[in-house]
Design a protein around this nucleic acid. Structure first.
Lengths: 184, 184
DNA sequence: CCTTGACGTGTCAGTTTCTACATGTCACTT
DNA sequence: AAGTGACATGTAGAAACTGACACGTCAAGG
């Protein structure tokens, strides 16, 4: 379901696109939120054509390019899904799982892991901040850019992640110093 | 892989447990991080017995209860996984996907959705704060409780989520007021 | 001319995950 | 004695997802 919605949403906001382009988007923007390979996207698009949520137009001399366009039915579908208040959020987060299991490592190794994590989160945060700066520089004024709220959420989330990893590393280092890095 | 690690980690920190108890834990604590139904857990435990990461002891007169205990090999496995620096984080987040697609709704409906989301996040945050208060009240002093760092991360994350949802709702309401709730 | 790399679509086998079905025990209440 | 609900383990089929294989076009550079 979620993949279908993610594809419809991308078509709704960015306009008609090929499967290849959609796969690219899933490597870029949406990646922070949902992932899919082209091997999953192509069959999904076929299903969506069948159910009438999108239409397809064959183009691209020889290269067999297919451009998909969202229909009114497709828009209705997104609309219902986004506004739907079901609290049934699917969350899967490998980083958080790692965090959960962190106390199982000896403090010095746990601290090193956290330092590495903090650095990576800091780098990702920088990327997002640059994205926002670029958008603000060119897109002048008031209207909310597609993904603007999501970008904001991403920046806040990575800030938390970076700070948490740093402070946890510091705490672990303090503990490691106290008992000479021993203990589990 | 992640499910296997999550199960091993739970056994490592909480001690021996039955499949049923592990399934309970996945409804509770780990739920913020990873989910699994018993129908996935039982087969996974069988696989882990086979590969020597856990041992099983049949108990429980008549009810066929099986208690699983982590082995040294199992501990080594967690250790390697947690410390492993691969940046290949798997993230899937339905709430964030919703956030991403939010601008596709008319501002007034989007605002209402965000208000609801903010409330739910606020409630979840309260639960976590209560958990932490309870832990601090009974567990007196210095050592890090299992999941203590994770709990901290959870609290920070839900705080961000709540604030973001609130501020986004406010922004959307401002926009809705400006154009009388019309427009997409 | 040939190679390289981006463009472009698709299938298939295997793994993970979900929903539903299936079965039975034990303790407590009515 | 019967019913209810937590305890307890499993299987089966379907859907979601991944990684690898497979094929073919087009533009640019050497």
């Amino acid at each position: 379901m979620s993949l279908r919605i993610a594809l419809l949403g991308t078509l709704a906001s960015k306009g008609p696109a090929s499967g290849y382009e959609l796969a690219k988007t899933f490597d870029d923007v949406i990646n922070q939120v949902w992932q899919a390979k082209h091997s999953q996207i192509y069959p999904e698009l076929a299903k969506m054509v069948e159910s009438g949520a999108v239409t397809v137009e064959e183009t691209g001399g020889g290269r067999g390019r297919k451009v998909y366009t969202i229909t009114e039915a497709g828009r209705t579908e997104i609309d219902a899904w986004v506004a739907h208040p079901e609290p049934h959020r699917a969350v899967r987060n490998e980083t958080a799982l790692r965090a959960f299991l962190l106390p199982l490592l000896p403090p010095d190794r746990a601290a090193a892991t956290m330092r590495g994590l903090a650095e990576r989160h800091a780098a990702l945060l920088d990327d997002l901040l640059k994205d926002r700066a670029a958008i603000e520089a060119r897109g002048a004024s008031g209207e909310p850019p597609f993904g603007g709220y999501a970008l904001d959420l991403g920046i806040r989330t990575f800030t938390v992640l970076r700070d948490w990893a740093r402070e946890t590393a510091e705490d672990l280092e303090r503990r490691a110093a106290e008992n000479g890095g021993k203990g589990r």
